[in-house]
Design a binder for these strands. Sequence first.
DNA 1: GTTGGCACTCCCCGTCCTCGAGTGCCAATG
DNA 2: CATTGGCACTCGAGGACGGGGAGTGCCAAC
Lengths: 339, 339
Amino acid sequence: MLEDRRLAVLRAIVEDYVSTREPVGSKALVERHRLGVSSATIRNDMAALEEEGYIAQPHTSAGRIPTDLGYRAFVDRLSGVKPMSSAERRAISSFLAGAVDLDDVMSRSVRLLAQITRQVALVQYPSLVQSAILHLEIVRLGETRALLVLIADTGRVEQRVVDLPAPVSDDDIARIRSRLLSASAGVTCSDLGPAVEGVPAEFEPGLRPSVAAIIATLLETTLDTEEQRIVLGGTANLARYRDVFSTNLEPVLEALEEQVVLLRLLGEVSAATEVTVMIGHENPVEDLQGTSLVGTGYGRGESLVAGVGVVGPTRMDYPGTMAAVRAVAEYLSRILDEN
Amino acid sequence: MLEDRRLAVLRAIVEDYVSTREPVGSKALVERHRLGVSSATIRNDMAALEEEGYIAQPHTSAGRIPTDLGYRAFVDRLSGVKPMSSAERRAISSFLAGAVDLDDVMSRSVRLLAQITRQVALVQYPSLVQSAILHLEIVRLGETRALLVLIADTGRVEQRVVDLPAPVSDDDIARIRSRLLSASAGVTCSDLGPAVEGVPAEFEPGLRPSVAAIIATLLETTLDTEEQRIVLGGTANLARYRDVFSTNLEPVLEALEEQVVLLRLLGEVSAATEVTVMIGHENPVEDLQGTSLVGTGYGRGESLVAGVGVVGPTRMDYPGTMAAVRAVAEYLSRILDEN
DNA sequence: GTTGGCACTCCCCGTCCTCGAGTGCCAATG
DNA sequence: CATTGGCACTCGAGGACGGGGAGTGCCAAC
């Protein structure tokens, strides 16, 4: 009974604080929620909640605000699933349906998610390592240069310029291309190494270094940790939370410009199909410890190929954000499935 | 004589204001610059400059700050070319040299420019319309779907999924591909329409709609106004100028997220090889009229293929920014030339 | 045209003070 | 023993006040 009410108080504090942005006091609380008890009782509960670390006061004689721990309890035990309206679902679906290629899908998704949540959205390209090769193309750029184009079954297209150790003719390029294609078509990128290992030896000695160079670039492109790409959008929404980041918007913006940082972030939450939340100090990136991350993985069926998420102030509408992230992840998975 | 000194005063005001961020008064001016006259004389000059609209005072009994017109005069008549140190040139050169493909060149350039100028950098991908087709590839994704990959001589690679009106065999795809390639290789994208016009008629009637669909997508990809792509970086630097954007960072960030807006911006300054400056209200985008744009075009030889630029507060170091933009544009042109 | 002098204007900034929301504690109550 | 009303207390927000100072405009003298 008592425990129940305390949790209800915590929930009320979180909700009020999220919507008003101001420390919430005992009196305002009884007025806005039908708690059925007096403000003095609430004060006692609040004292207990503060004792346990769920809420804090910015200074004596101010209202309470939730701590990271308080938000954590709210997310874990209190926030019900907030289903999206069918209108919202339809909007998502129609917005993503018009995409013409993978780049388009990614950029539409990120804009959509940023718009729904009014926060910063992150969407990761399907990982190459988890994709299979659909097609390879080698285009001769000059005597000793070629362009390698790789098309994965997730829709990703990567290109790299290869500097060849020796001049190679158009005809040679065509032979190399056709052999590499037959060796790698349908192969998952992570298995590519063994699949093409013996290929150079099949060619004339003079050509072998060139073939090896092309293969090296191919493997680099697929295995390199830099193969991961993330797009982000809605940075402007950060400015909306000037009260939170007032003094130091800069480090947050800087962190968000670093691909490596974003990868680390999404890596933490994209391992599961459920939506995962990292609150404040739980955030692995130091400059983002004033923010929360809501994210999840997406992919074809059970094999997750990338992550999608949202970064915002710890004071955010968790149920709504979680629902939006989940919905977008579902649509992304569906689009991948269709290929 | 008089005119000369007045201009010197304007220059001094701009320089001081840019470096101190504070309205500059007559006394401080004589102290910091060897003007050889007393502060009273400067006051007279300032009154004249204010009369002519070059400077203004935020309120009575405060120092003066340059107006947009003042900056314009500074840029046009006063700012000498500020050569980059050889160390800087070397840094630029080595930073851009490591790029592995066009995407890499673009993202490195934008980061570099943002870092040098400590402002927001914009780099536009080489326009497809100005590029020639180097290679075309058509990959069959299913009975009625194909992926069209287009490689331009500027290094751009674009891909599009094509929905075919009728099932097409692997063999058909190969024939279409080879015919389209021979019809379009080396052709500038803007001339592509006539070059491929008669191609569908060369195929069997049953295949013609599919060929037409592929060609339609091809033309769409190259002529569509959306073919233009711009990358931006250094958004975090905006937060540094909190004094300027304090109240409304949001519209600026929003404007910078709109590709269309960025295109309009760069379009204004990328028509020339000289560096062009748009100051404050001269800026075509309403939400950016509190900012200045420094930009230029780049390309192979005389034919410009895209733009590069920097957005920052009107109070910026114009000579330095102009030098940096010019340097990066030169390196980009050089890299394109090498292909 | 230039200069020194002088009165004047405001912004900045620190101080002081009041107001009010909110708290903690306590004694009373069912 | 949880709940409640009462009460003294705390502390930040915000407004009023006032001195200090940087800067200006103007004027008379050179």
